[in-house]
Every structure is written in structure tokens, then in C-alpha cells.
């Protein structure tokens, strides 16, 4: 049986910017932002692992702020800007944080990784020279079952150094 006109839930005309591109779609109010990104837009880099706000795998940037996309309805992003892991860098042009995760082996199964990257990028913007304690605190809202976090912490340190070095280079 298909969804008939009369029983169709009231849809909301959603317009938002995702990774720099305007996206428009009619959605049900209850649609979670995580599901909208993954299934309506096909941006499957944002992962879903708990849907109750603890694990952090679904973290995206909403107007630059790292938030749980499983705890926000897509309609709430109307008129806002969302950045997902796909918006950080590309395979042949990794973001410095992504590159540092590769260098330091901060990835194992890679399932929690997108949410960690989207948490670390704004963290390093605010803390360009973080201590290990600050890094661990910043990662405390992202569960990882594979790494024991050590190589992730190392990756964040490495990213901070690399980004600092890049910033200190005179502009050409």
C-alpha cells in the first residue's frame, strides 16, 4: 500500500545549506537531521550509532557548531548551514585533521571517525595549541571502541602542530 494523500503527514518545506550547497526538500517534521543527511541527501559519512546523543558518531557542524544530528530535527536546520565530514576534505585533498588521523593511525574501523573529525575541527579552531587533557576532554563526547583513543589523541596533537606550522608560514 502506498502512502495516500489523505494520510500523508504534513510536510515542511525545508531549505538549508549543506557543505556549501543549497538543498531543498519537503520533509516530515519528525525526520532527524542525521537521517535527512544520510538518506535524503546521500551524505552517508555521518554515522548513526546510538540515536540518544551519547556516542557522537553523528556529530555535524550546524552553523559551525558541533552538534548531534540525531538530536536535531531536520526542520530545525531550516535556513541554517550544515557541514558534514564530506565537507571537510576529499580523498585527494584531505583536511589537515584528516591527514593527521591517517598519519597517526587514528582510524580503525572508521565508524566513529566522521563524528570525531567534525568535533575536532572546531575544537582546534578554538584551541590551536591544546594540552593532552584538553584534547581528551574535547573527545569525551565521542565514543570509540577500537582505538582506546590514544592514536586519536596523537592525531589531534599532530593536526594542531601541522595547522600551526601552516599558519606560521608567510603568505605568498
Amino acid at each position: 500500500m502506498a502512502i495516500t494523500e489523505s494520510t500523508m503527514p504534513k510536510l515542511f518545506d525545508l531549505a538549508l545549506t549543506v557543505n556549501g550547497t543549497l538543498r531543498e526538500q519537503a520533509v516530515e517534521p519528525r525526520l532527524l537531521l542525521s537521517d535527512f543527511l544520510r538518506h535524503d541527501l546521500g551524505l552517508t559519512g555521518t554515522h548513526v550509532a546510538c540515536e540518544h546523543g551519547v556516542c557522537g558518531a553523528c556529530t555535524v557542524l550546524l552553523d559551525g557548531e558541533p552538534v548531534r544530528s540525531c538530536l536535531i530535527f531536520a526542520v530545525q536546520a531550516h535556513g541554517h548551514s550544515v557541514t558534514t565530514v564530506e565537507g571537510l576534505g576529499a580523498v585527494d585533498r584531505l583536511h589537515p585533521v584528516q591527514e593527521a588521523f591517517r598519519q597517526a593511525h587514528g582510524v580503525q574501523c572508521g565508524f566513529c571517525t566522521p563524528g570525531i573529525l567534525t568535533s575536532v575541527v572546531p575544537f582546534l579552531a578554538d584551541h590551536p595549541d591544546p594540552s593532552e587533557e584538553e584534547i581528551r576532554e574535547a573527545l569525551s563526547g565521542n565514543l570509540c571502541r577500537c582505538t582506546g583513543y590514544q592514536h586519536i589523541v596523537d592525531a589531534v596533537k599532530l593536526a594542531a602542530q601541522a595547522m600551526k606550522a601552516a599558519n606560521e608560514q608567510p603568505a605568498r
Binding site: T44, V48, T84, G89, F101, R102, G110
Partner: peptide, 16 residues
């Protein structure tokens, strides 16, 4: 690791 670039950019395919 060979597999990292795709995992880091959200392109690696998981079942979901």
C-alpha cells in the same frame, strides 16, 4: 593504512 582516505572522508561504504 591503505583504507584510511575513504574512511576519513565519509566515502567508505558501510551496510547502512
Amino acid at each position: 593504512r591503505n583504507e584510511d582516505a575513504r574512511l576519513l572522508t565519509g566515502l567508505a561504504q558501510f551496510v547502512d
